[in-house]
Every structure is written in structure tokens, then in C-alpha cells.
Design a binder for these strands. Structure first.
Lengths: 231, 231
DNA sequence: GAAATTATTTGACCCGAGTCAAGAGAACAT
DNA sequence: ATGTTCTCTTGACTCGGGTCAAATAATTTC
């Protein structure tokens, strides 16, 4: 992903635009590099533009006063982030940090808004992106509030399998500590639950590789949320 | 709020549009009435349009298999809802139900999309609405994951006070059961916490009226999230 | 306005998951 | 390879908050 134009042209936001306009978009993009663990922005920062991952991996997260972290999103290549302040004004609602060495493209707000006025289909693309985000947050709130950690983990593993187009085997792309934070728990709890799921014959793990031994079991665990049910 | 045109003209989505276009918008709106507790849509329903509350109160919520409910939003007059499927396709991500007798305006997707093409500023208004929603979900996830119920309640009460433009007195506009569901807990727990907060000298309650006896205490409770901290 | 339904509160109990502490591996640097 | 650091795992313990059950208050219905 060395070429900016190529990255831009493959991104949902800029989908369907003629080459002429893609070049125009490229001209307003600013490429920035971030080392692993480097902060991209903080939640109190004024958001005067949004970003697009060109290469690497970026997490969007909140931190409690006591230091517990909740990851909201993890974005990889071609995914935009930090759009909220572009349209609602004010600061970023959360923090962004590179979890791998990353290269991102930055689109300054004024130039991007001008582009939107010139090319209204950009607005519809962006609306689709924000709507998808809302849908995803809806699931996340449902998971946090209505499901227990094992169910959230099962749902995530099944999602990862879809993502990786595998039937019964996934490879975590993030550390278990980060996965805990994404699931709204802590590493100790995640570790214990992985052990328990192994003992229950659901999965088999070796480092970041996880094999599903009982996909149906995982699916019902993911859906049930809590193990009550049935009269 | 008897007049549709008046409702439409006051809504953020249609803000800044000339009367001519507002009338055009009114012409595509369909008014619907819902009794208290009546379902407006379910999360599996295909979303072929979005809604605007003209009068009443509507909740957007998820339900777990075991029946626990999590409210995502409560919308009153002039607030739009159900926009996600308009832009991302597919079904509604959550359920909508009237919690008071309500009148809502429905905007069919095709007609609305046509309007957007004709008036691009509509798209920017809608982007602002969705961005604000994302921001709000961010807070909700932070609250659910990183704060305990007392902190969530304190934050909500302070928010309500701002909303109602009162310094140290609020009136709940929803039942305590619904409030529990909004805060991601159950009525029993909410009840106990209200009692505890009273014993701690933070608040005084009588039915749906709540007086703040120690606003500073509420504020630090709302921010701290958990009562750890301090070296 | 009395019965009936619904909302709220309180008590006893339990369990999921967090905290604290310690070890075991794995990765990295020198 | 060897110490250093970071990640992951395991144990013992605690606690927030959910479940179940029952009493009380508030609202609605006829």
C-alpha cells in the first residue's frame, strides 16, 4: 500500500468517484507515520480533520480514571477514523493510538468539506460509513450490557472467523490484553475464560491461534448471552 | 405541535432550508400515531425510511434472550430516529416503542434520498445528526464499561439538570424501571442506589422528583466512575 | 372508590468478574 | 546465552450487582 492514490481509490468513502476527483482528494491528503504505541490523537483534542489507515493497525479507545481501557474500534488498512468532529464540531470523543507501526492519511476538515460540496456522492458515502458505525456500536452496547464475557468472546471469535474466511480456525491479530480491552474485560478474566472454554471442549488455543472444536456450541454461547433460559 | 410543517421546520435535519423546500419535505412525510407501549418497529424489520417524533416519547432499545432490556435512546419531539438503515441498508439495529402516546412523521427512504440529492445541505445536516449519535454512544459505552451504576446514575441526573435548566432539582420524565434500563441495570438495583445516595446526603427523592443536596458530591461521583483512586 | 394491575422497594442470597499477588513463558536487548 | 521486560496464566479473595421472593405503594380500570 505504497501509493496514496491507490489507498484512496479503494476506500469506501471515496468509492465510485472518477479518477479526476480521486487525484483532487489525494492532493489534500497528508501522510503521517506513527510508531507502535504512539498516540494519534486524544479525546480532548480538537478534531480538525479525519484519518484513513493506509497501513498498520489503530485502536480507538476510552480510559477510566483508574486506568481501565475500553477499545471501541480497531481499524486496519482502508478504514477511516476520527470523522465525528468533522461533522459535529468539537473534540474527538475518544483516543486513537497505533497498535502497530502505521501510516495514515489525514484529511483536513475544511478541504474535505469543500470536496463534499463539490461532490455530493461523497456525503452519501460518508453517511453510509457513519450509519455502519452506529450499527456496530449498537451491537457493542448490547454485548456489554446484555451478555457476559464468555458470550462476547464467542461472538468475537465467530466474527473473526467470518472476517478471515475460515470455518473453524482463527488467528488473533491483536494481543490477548488488547482483546480483553476490546471485550470490555481484563486479561486475567479473558485468560480464565479461554481455559474454561478449552475444558468445555469448545476451543483449542496455541498462542494467538484458536481452533474451534465445537462451532455450534460457540454459536449458542454467543447468542444466549446468559445461561438462563428455558422453563 | 399540531402542524407538520412547523415540526419539520424546527428539526435540526431540516434546518436552514427555505420554506419552499420544507413544503416539499412535508409532502413526503407520513404521519402515524402510536399508543403508549405500542411497537414502532422491531430490530429485524427492514428499514425503508426514518422517523421524526412530532409528539410524545419513543425509546430505542435492545432486549436479551432472558428479557433484560437496554435502552439506547429516548427521543422526544423534534428528534429523528431510525436513520441507520436509510444509509447503510438492511434492517433496523434495534427496536422502537412509544413510551407515551406519540405522533411521529415517517419519511420514506426513496423520497428522502431524492430530496438529499436535490438539496445537499440536507446530507450535511444528517451527517451532523449521525456524528452526534456516535458521540453519544461513545459516552454510553464508556459508562457501561468503565463506570459503576452509581456513577452512571449521577451522570444522568446531572445531564437531566442541564437539560431541564435547573440547578439542583430534576423531574424524571420516565419511570424508574425505564431509567434502570437506560442505565444498564435493573429496577431493584436502581432503587437500592437511590436509597444509598439519599443516606449519603447526596439527593432527596419524592416519586419522580429528585433534589440535589450535594451537587459537588454528585459531580465527583459521576466523574470518578469507580471509587478507587488516590495514592 | 374498591378491586386489580403495575411500579417500587426491601431482604436474603449468589455469582460473575474484578483486584492483588505471584509465577511461568515469550520476546527482546545487550 | 542471559538477563530484562512484557505478556499471559493461575490462585485466593472481594464485591458489585443480579436473582428470587415478598411486601408496600401507586395507578388504572370498571
Amino acid at each position: 500500500m505504497a501509493n496514496h492514490l491507490e489507498t484512496i481509490s479503494k476506500t469506501v468513502i471515496f468509492d465510485g468517484l472518477p479518477e479526476q476527483q480521486l487525484k483532487q482528494i489525494e492532493s489534500i491528503a497528508i501522510s503521517k507515520n506513527f510508531a507502535k504505541d504512539e498516540t494519534i490523537f486524544l479525546e480532548q483534542d480538537e478534531g480538525n480533520g479525519f484519518y484513513l489507515v493506509a497501513d498498520g493497525l489503530v485502536k480507538i479507545f476510552k480510559v477510566s480514571p483508574s486506568g481501565k481501557e475500553q477499545i471501541l474500534h480497531i481499524f486496519g488498512p482502508l478504514e477511516p477514523f476520527g470523522e465525528v468532529p468533522v461533522f459535529s464540531g468539537r473534540e474527538f470523543p475518544a483516543n486513537a493510538q497505533a497498535i502497530k507501526t502505521s501510516r495514515v492519511l489525514f484529511f483536513p476538515r475544511p478541504a474535505f468539506l469543500a470536496l463534499i460540496s463539490a461532490h455530493p456522492s461523497l456525503a452519501l458515502n460518508m453517511l453510509a460509513v457513519l450509519a455502519m458505525r452506529l450499527r456496530q456500536f449498537t451491537y457493542q452496547i448490547e454485548n456489554l450490557s446484555l451478555k457476559e464475557v464468555p458470550a462476547r468472546l464467542a461472538a468475537y471469535l465467530l466474527y473473526l472467523a467470518t472476517e478471515q474466511e475460515r470455518e473453524d480456525f482463527v488467528t488473533l491479530d491483536i494481543s490477548k490484553g488488547q482483546l480483553a480491552s476490546l471485550l470490555g474485560t481484563i486479561p486475567e478474566t479473558l485468560s480464565r475464560i479461554l481455559t474454561r472454554m478449552h475444558k468445555q471442549g469448545l476451543i483449542e488455543t496455541r498462542d494467538r491461534a484458536i481452533r474451534f472444536l465445537d462451532r455450534a456450541g460457540l454459536e449458542s454461547l454467543a447468542i444466549d448471552g446468559k445461561k438462563n433460559e428455558l422453563p
